[in-house]
Structures are given as structure tokens and as C-alpha cells.
Amino acid sequence: MTRASPMTPIELAQASAEAMWDNDCASQALGMTLEHTAPGEATLSMTITQAMSNGHGHCHGGFMFTLADSAFAFACNSYNQMTVAQHCSITYLTPVHVGDRLTATAREVSRRGRSGLYDVRLTNQAGDAVGEFRGHSRTVKGTHLPIDE
């Protein structure tokens, strides 16, 4: 009996993302699109709706944070290890408006032992940076996909 060859790191990242996406009701309900996954990387996008606006008529910062946090989650979970946020922060650079299409691009800065550090840049449809997010991750018990013994 022959065994299938093991997944490449990119295939593993994509399969882990698909498994996570199937259960990610929050990201899906907000209309996010998962555009790219690779080891330690993820890109998601979302259009800002009227329901996401604050009292100033701009995008509420919580929705920007949520988009960045989702990109962070897909990036740090790309190794088929359950990984959670330990600490996150965001800096808002400029107001975002209803109708803007935001893209969150996450990249791994460091991954050692059970800890990881990730940066996420939020840009609008013109490519202008509108926010910078940093997330600290921690792996926990469990995997997204079954592991061959």
C-alpha cells in the first residue's frame, strides 16, 4: 500500500485555512473574503458598510480591528497547530469611510516555540495604509487537520 506524499507547507497552510474558514462565522457574517494564505501569511478583505459606521460617519475602529485580527488568525494558524491571540494592538492611521474596501495583509515576524509575533497592515482600495496591527500568538493543544500517525 502506498502512502500519499505529505503536503507542502503551502498546501498545509491552505488546508488549515479552509478548515478554519468553515467555522469562522464572524468573518463570514461581516462579508470578509479570504484572499491568500501561505505559511505565516494571510490576506483578507472587507467592504465597509453603513452598519459599520460610528458617530462620526467613519468606519468604527472595532471593525478595522476585527479584519486585522482575522488576518492575524489565519496567518498564525497556517502550520496546522491551534493558535490563539495572546495580545493584540492597533494604531489607526487615517479615517476609513463607508464603501471603502479594506485589505488586511498579515505576515509573520517571529515564531519560536509556542509564541509568535505578527504584523498586519490595513490598506484601503487606493493602497493607502489606514492601520497597523501587531499580534502576539500562542499555540495551544490541537490541530485543524488530522495528523497521520
Rank of each mutant, 00 (worst) to 15 (best):
M1T: 10
A4C: 00
A4Q: 06
M7D: 11
T8F: 09
T8S: 15
P9V: 13
P9Q: 09
E11D: 05
E11S: 01
E11T: 05
A17V: 06
A19Q: 12
M20C: 06
M20P: 01
M20W: 08
M20H: 08
W21G: 04
D22I: 15
N23K: 15
N23F: 11
D24C: 00
S27M: 14
A29H: 10
L30W: 14
T33G: 07
E35F: 01
E35T: 00
H36Y: 01
T37P: 05
A38E: 13
A38D: 07
A42N: 11
T43C: 06
S45A: 09
M46Y: 12
M46W: 09
M46D: 10
M46C: 14
T47K: 11
T47W: 02
I48V: 13
I48T: 02
T49W: 06
T49N: 04
A51E: 15
A51R: 14
N54D: 15
N54C: 08
N54R: 10
H56N: 12
G57P: 12
G57T: 08
H58D: 13
H58N: 14
H60Q: 14
H60G: 02
G61I: 03
G62H: 11
F63I: 12
F63P: 02
F63S: 00
F63E: 03
T66D: 01
L67R: 13
A68W: 07
D69H: 12
S70E: 08
A71M: 09
A71V: 12
A71C: 09
A73R: 04
C76P: 04
Y79R: 07
Y79E: 02
Y79M: 07
N80V: 05
T83H: 03
T83N: 03
V84N: 03
A85S: 15
A85H: 02
Q86L: 14
C88I: 07
C88R: 10
T91W: 02
T91F: 03
L93A: 09
L93Y: 00
T94Y: 04
P95Q: 06
V96W: 13
R101D: 00
L102S: 01
T103A: 01
T103C: 02
A104E: 08
A104M: 12
T105F: 00
T105Y: 09
A106T: 06
A106M: 04
A106D: 06
R107D: 03
E108Q: 12
V109K: 13
V109D: 05
S110H: 10
S110V: 10
G113C: 05
G116R: 04
L117M: 09
Y118W: 07
D119H: 13
Q125F: 03
Q125Y: 06
A126G: 01
A126Y: 11
D128H: 11
D128L: 01
V130E: 15
V130N: 09
E132A: 13
F133I: 08
R134C: 04
G135R: 07
H136K: 12
H136C: 04
R138C: 02
V140A: 10
G142R: 12
L145T: 10
P146R: 05
P146I: 14
P146A: 14
D148K: 13
